[in-house]
């Protein structure tokens, strides 16, 4: 569904990504992992149109999208969140989701076409407990993250890119997010998760791609990855002590 072919990105002599290639199948949950500076966020920025690759192609449903503007990519069906929690702080929950609504109903996530009802549907789906008129700036961290997801799926995407969505959350809150992700996936949404929190990523992903220093070093199922010596080397060799299992 989404294919990256030899994607490279350099910034003024500093190479962030080198010849990264992989595919994302429809309906899967793909995990993207790697230590700090591996190029994960650069990759998301490339996929969502905020950056252009120095070379290589990004193909979405058969069409090259690497040169498109961010909003255009959203219209084409790819939505994203940001590493630092990012919502419209001075708007309430309702409006945050409302402005992200696009007219079409592509992936069947929504039962009805009435915009207002769609917003409430999304709020329920993502289990936001605060009242819809609450200002985003008054929300606690976990609700904020849910709002981010809500805003992202308001555009009715076919592919959702989640950039470190559980950073800053407790284990329980992360589990809740994990449940939401699985539920969305069961409803037909393809999801790419970028994460630092290994446990979470391994639990939720069906397949994993590992990056280091801008290159893909391996991909496979979570079990395969956690046994792969190259991966272990990257993490333990650098002194990182995350538990992969």
């Amino acid at each position: 569904m989404l294919e990256l072919k030899n994607v490279s990105k350099s910034f003024k002599g500093l190479t962030a990504l080198l010849n990264v290639s992989f595919e994302v199948q429809r309906g899967e949950i793909l995990g993207l992992m790697g230590p700090n500076g591996a190029g994960k966020s650069t990759l998301i920025n490339l996929m969502s149109g905020f950056l252009r690759p120095t070379s290589g192609e990004i193909i979405w449903k058969g069409v090259n999208i690497e040169k498109l503007k961010p909003y255009h990519i959203v219209v084409k069906g790819i939505s994203r969140t940001f590493q630092q929690p990012r919502v419209f702080l001075n708007m309430d929950i309702f409006d945050n989701i409302y402005v992200g609504l696009l007219p079409s109903n592509k992936s069947g996530l929504f039962k009805n076409n009435n915009l207002k009802e769609r917003v409430f549907e999304i709020i329920k789906k993502v289990s936001i407990s605060n009242a819809h008129s609450t200002l985003a700036r008054d929300l606690p961290h976990d609700e904020l993250r849910k709002l981010e997801i809500a805003r992202a799926i308001a555009a009715d995407p076919e592919l959702l890119l989640l950039d470190e969505i559980v950073s800053g959350l407790t284990v329980e809150e992360s589990n809740e997010i994990g449940e939401i992700i699985r539920m969305l996936n069961r409803a037909g949404l393809t999801i790419i998760i970028i994460e630092h929190v290994m446990k979470f990523l391994m639990n939720v992903s069906q397949r994993v791609v590992v990056l280091d220093h801008g290159e893909k070093i391996c991909e496979g199922s979570p079990e395969e990855i956690s046994r792969n010596p190259k991966v272990l080397d990257v993490y333990f060799g650098k002194g990182e002590e995350e538990n992969l299992a």
Binding site: S48, F50, K69, P70, Y71, H72, V74, V75, S79, R80, F82, R86, V87, F88, L89, N90, M91, V99, G100, L102, R151, A152, A154, A155
Partner: peptide, 13 residues
Amino acid sequence: EDEILSQAAGIDT
């Protein structure tokens, strides 16, 4: 409010 975020929300700024 946040131009980059609105672009990510599909708005042709």
